[in-house]
């Protein structure tokens, strides 16, 4: 498995990245940790004549927590997420999810930015970020703009990011309450058979608001407002959970693969979501 030849660039600032993207258009791609891209290049399923490595670009790293406002630089690795005690206190679901991604070596290289920007329906962070209502910051020739995670994904590997833009950071407001990320996979290193991110807030014995997203059950991550609404103003009892699950299942569209047929995936999606809701509620 040998990739086709390419030119390699390692710019030190965003302007340099954007200049390269403008110059080479479709023929250029940025690379963060490379653990999605490099295997595709080795299999020659992705040919990239101009490869732009982001590792030296200033300002793309770091996790900042300002009250409930959380900002994660695109080059933050899954390992960084897991190790960050402040983040674990402010938004523990990130550590919970990151620990379920790939394996230790891959988590050392795999980044939040790469995970959300790639548009791979198997990646875990997109669904999680939709659940958290995160905003993605994109920088391009025309400056900076933000796109909500919930508006970012168009189809498999197709996103709102244009070829000349770079995703530089992910930000969101940490919510009070409980959250959980549940994932079923065949083994460590596998993508999800089904995964669910749930965040909910409690007022007394009822749920004030809920956000639910699911991973690898469609060609894009699925944020289900209907599922969240089904939990709101309920005591999160069995009938409310069932309503939420039914609503979420109406929004997913899994396809058959080696992990199993559609009927199985839909069933497991319901089970995993039920578990995630119960877990989040217990933490709320």
């Amino acid at each position: 498995m040998i990739p086709a030849p390419f030119d390699y660039y390692r710019p030190t600032d965003i302007a340099g990245v954007i200049a390269l993207l403008e110059e080479h258009g479709d023929d250029a791609r940025v690379m963060a940790g490379g653990h999605s891209l490099i295997p595709m290049m080795k299999l020659r399923m992705a040919e990239i004549p101009h490869l732009i490595d982001l590792q030296d670009v200033a300002g793309l790293g770091g996790i900042t927590i300002d009250g409930s406002e959380i900002r994660i630089g695109a080059m933050t690795t899954q390992a960084d997420l897991i190790d960050h005690e402040g983040l674990a206190a402010a938004a523990p679901i990130l550590r919970e999810a990151a620990l379920q991604i790939a394996d230790p070596q891959v988590r050392y290289m795999g980044t939040v930015g790469g995970n959300v920007a790639n548009g791979d329906p198997g990646n875990d962070m997109p669904g999680l970020m939709q659940c958290l209502d995160a905003q993605f910051t994109l920088v391009g020739p025309d400056g900076e703009r933000t796109v909500a995670a919930r508006d970012f994904y168009e189809a498999a590997y197709m996103t709102a990011r244009t070829d000349e833009e770079v995703l530089t950071c992910v930000s969101f407001t940490a919510q009070p309450g409980g959250a959980a990320y549940e994932k079923q996979k065949r083994k460590i290193g596998d993508y999800a058979t089904a995964a669910a991110a749930v965040q909910l807030t409690r007022e007394g014995s009822t749920c004030a608001a809920a956000s639910i997203a699911m991973t690898n059950l469609s060609d894009v991550p699925v944020w289900s407002p209907a599922a969240g609404a089904a939990l709101a103003d309920t005591p999160v009892d069995d009938s409310a959970i069932k309503a939420a699950v039914d609503a979420a299942l109406a929004d997913i569209d899994p396809t058959e693969d080696n992990r199993g047929p559609v009927k199985f995936k839909r069933h497991v999606a319901g089970v995993i979501l039920t578990r995630a809701i119960k877990s989040a509620w217990a933490r709320a």
Binding site: G34, H35, I38, P39, K42, D103, P104, Q105, V106, M109
Partner: peptide, 22 residues
């Protein structure tokens, strides 16, 4: 394809699968 880890080395203090690093 970065699944087996037989190529694991340490790069700048991180465990890395060197088959998936240019």
């Amino acid at each position: 394809t970065s699944h087996c880890g037989a190529c694991t080395v340490i790069v700048n203090g991180k465990s890395v699968k060197s088959c998936t690093m240019f």
